[in-house]
């Protein structure tokens, strides 16, 4: 969906749903995921429909993901870092996921 105009100068590797992906250190997690071709970052808690980044400036809360076991984090506002473990935000709370980790 999106491509990089230039190769990352400070590449980092992180995981989304167990899949290793590459990004640029410091760019937003949402940007890194979009560059990796992932657009559905969460499921709606109401109708379970897929949702993805919409406003990219912290207003719409559509880009919520799980970061290192913590839910409801805005992917557009959190920087990509080496070794981050991310998960798609579930629609309905998943009791097992509340154990933390990923």
């Amino acid at each position: 969906m999106f491509k990089r105009l230039s190769e990352p100068k400070a590449p980092v590797t992180f995981e989304f749903e167990g899949q290793p992906l590459k990004g640029e250190a410091g760019e937003s997690i949402a940007a890194a995921l979009l560059a990796a071709g992932i657009i559905d970052l969460r499921r709606s808690g109401e109708d379970d429909s897929p949702r993805g980044p919409y406003c990219m400036i912290g207003n719409c809360f559509e880009c919520l993901v799980w970061i290192e076991g913590q839910g409801s984090r805005q992917a557009c506002r959190e920087p990509a870092r080496e070794g981050l473990k991310l998960r798609r935000h579930p629609g309905r709370p998943d009791p097992q996921a509340f154990g933390g980790g990923s």
Binding site: M1, F2, K3, R4, L5, E27, A31, A35
Partner: peptide, 12 residues
């Protein structure tokens, strides 16, 4: 924002 912040442009 994606363009300014991360140098991303649509590839389609």
């Amino acid at each position: 924002t994606l363009m300014k912040d991360a140098g991303l442009v649509p590839d389609q």
